[in-house]
């Protein structure tokens, strides 16, 4: 069965966009935390758990919201999976957690930071928010790899258990952040091209 890219989105330090259309510009030069809050508001979200998440999970949850917000996916929960790739992994939060344990005079390891010191937690947060009970995998590579995301997605889609997949590239560092997501379905409506490695690369690079 052929698969298509049915939505894509991006958040970075200058903008947020859906299907190539910018809906937020960081004109005030907001820092990470404030940008995430601004995008949350623009998306009209009302999800208090959001404020408990680390930055990487917030970014991922916003990215998923951009794609899934107005779509009525009719698949069953266990038929929708999430694949992610990151190069920074959870290091931004690892450093924050490390600060809670690095001073023996002020040693209070934080459980709510520790739980986010795994990069795949963002998929758990997206899964909970959107009730997605399908496959998940998290790769950590030096940069965006369209062929790796394609190969893994293709493997899952070909064998049939997964009807839709959210593919994500998420990175947060001290000075920068990026979230790029695409939705793959076997639905020809509203399509932004056939699901191929080169099309993913094109969408990632060209926007």
């Amino acid at each position: 069965m052929d698969h298509y890219i049915t939505a894509f989105g991006r958040i970075n330090s200058t903008q947020a966009s859906r299907n190539g259309k910018r809906f937020w510009s960081n004109q005030e030069g907001l820092k990470l935390a404030d940008s995430l809050k601004a995008i949350y508001k623009i998306l009209g979200m009302n999800y208090l758990k959001f404020f408990k998440m680390d930055e990487m999970s917030k970014l991922g949850v916003l990215g998923a919201e951009i794609l899934l917000k107005d779509l009525n996916l009719t698949y069953q929960a266990h038929e929708i999976g999430i694949l992610m790739l990151t190069s920074e992994s959870s290091l931004f939060t690892d450093q924050k957690y490390f600060e809670t344990i690095s001073d023996s005079q002020n040693y209070f390891p934080s459980p709510s930071l520790f739980v986010y010191t795994l990069p795949n937690i963002v998929m758990g947060e997206i899964a909970i928010k959107n009730n997605l009970k399908g496959e998940n995998i998290c790769f950590v590579q030096d940069q965006f790899k369209s062929h790796l995301l394609f190969d893994y997605a293709n493997y899952l889609l070909t064998r049939g258990s997964q009807k839709a997949l959210l593919l994500a590239f998420i990175d947060v560092t001290k000075n920068d952040y990026e979230c790029f997501m695409i939705l793959i379905e076997n639905n020809i409506k509203n399509n932004f091209g056939s699901f191929t490695s080169s099309r993913i690369e094109e969408l990632y690079c060209n926007e």
């Binding site: 795949n120 998290c138 950590v140």
Partner: peptide, 27 residues
């Protein structure tokens, strides 16, 4: 080297493997 991909490269380089190692970090 604190990056998992970099540490993975250090490991596969020991064996002179020409391919980029893949890293899966899924708890």
């Amino acid at each position: 080297r604190i990056h998992l991909w970099s540490s993975a490269q250090q490991i596969s380089r020991y064996f002179n493997n020409p391919n980029e190692p893949m890293v899966i970090s899924n708890a």
